[in-house]
Design a binder for these strands. Sequence first.
RNA 1: GUGGAUGUAGCUCAGCUGGUAGAGCAUUCGGUUGUGGUCCGAAAUGUCGCGGGUUCGAGCCCCGUCAUUCACCCCA
Length: 420
Amino acid sequence: MAKQFQAPKGVSEYFPPRSAGFEFVRECLVEPAKLAGYQLLELPAFEDTELFNRGVGESTDIVTKEMYTFEDRGGRSITLRPEGTAGVMRAVIEHGLDRGQLPVKVWYAGAFFRAERPQKGRYRQFYQAGIEAIGLTDPLIDAEVISIADAGFKRVGLKNYKLLITSLGDAESRAAHKIDLMKFLSSQKLDEATAARAQLNPLRIFDDKRDEIIDMMAKAPLLIDYLSDESKEHFNSVRQYLDKLNIKYELAPKLVRGFDYYTGTTFEFAHSDLGAQSAIGGGGRYDRLMNELGGQDLSGIGYGLGIDRVLLAAEAEGILKADLAAPDLFLIPLDSSNSNDASSLALKVANDLRKQGVKVEIAFGDRALKGAMKAADKSGARYAIVLGETELNSGLVEIKAMESGKVEQVRIANLVKFFN
RNA sequence: GUGGAUGUAGCUCAGCUGGUAGAGCAUUCGGUUGUGGUCCGAAAUGUCGCGGGUUCGAGCCCCGUCAUUCACCCCA
């Protein structure tokens, strides 16, 4: 027997019937961005490795141990994109999108890659939908970006999630805080691994899940208390906007995110029913990124939402409709032994209705009517029509409402009208 | 990268102290004429993850390996 292939380790893949839920979630997450005037940016799945080294940050785990990096046939170092923002910035700079009116507002959705040990809600190939708004520092745009993410979750129907928000301040805020935090950490006894992480990015220690570290960090100085007046004012107005929008949030001064580029407003959406990988989305502002990648000195803000995790969350909450892929109409042609007129008519009727946006399926194969009806039932179709000799002759069909079982006579020529 | 759990039909799982496979669901057909959801009957589907070892004999024991899964780490 030929070798049986298996998907590579840790990838997420979606096939029927669950793929309908995936598609639904993706649409829900993207739609609010489109409604707000964000436009599609379709990006390559791989980029110059250097882009991520500089964009994501050399000290991050993502860059140091989670990137799929390889040499292409021309000897270039290529990396499968581990996140979206760096690629967006590259494209914006390369194509001069920031030369026109600001802000630049774009959305993207697609696969991302990280060579991690897979776990619930954590995959080596996973899907994210995100937006970026570049070129405005107005706190209004911070609030809009957050509200668009929130609108996506609400569109899916999610309830058990919360918004965590903090500000990482500007460069001077962080510098002042870092001195005190390092002082604090050096006064504590840390194990080797933790001390190493503290060297790389002391904020990371706030993210440690061990009880003794959490207890220890309870007394650590918080960045939020070191914000410059400007940062403080910006953050306060973001919060005021959120209040006015009635978007509830929790102040999370210990919130740490995985990218080095965040400055100012930083946020994360956490879902309660997911286990360890609870973040369903996150993002924030980045003041320096564009400039560091060779572009203008513009600030931006954006987020990435985990489509896989939102699907998991929606399933955990039991809010996905079972019939997401169900057709409106199921057509059952019954050919007589010496003609296929019924099949031809079925195909024609299906095409006409589909032109009007009606979702129509045809019962294929030479199966008994009972079997075909069963297939109609399984499909979740709202209506079923049998097309046989009688119908061909009379031009009339019985359209059956599957749920109630009620039958209505309709002229074949009027079917389009019926479904309008 | 570290630790735990698990790998038996498409799915969920059972399989006694080792004697060479079973259930439910799903699938297909049928319960006489062109109408599904319930019920009844029948059929089909397995290199028991893979490789090695122990044994007269292994789905069951041992070793290895691969995969899945949960947690750490990290993050979407």
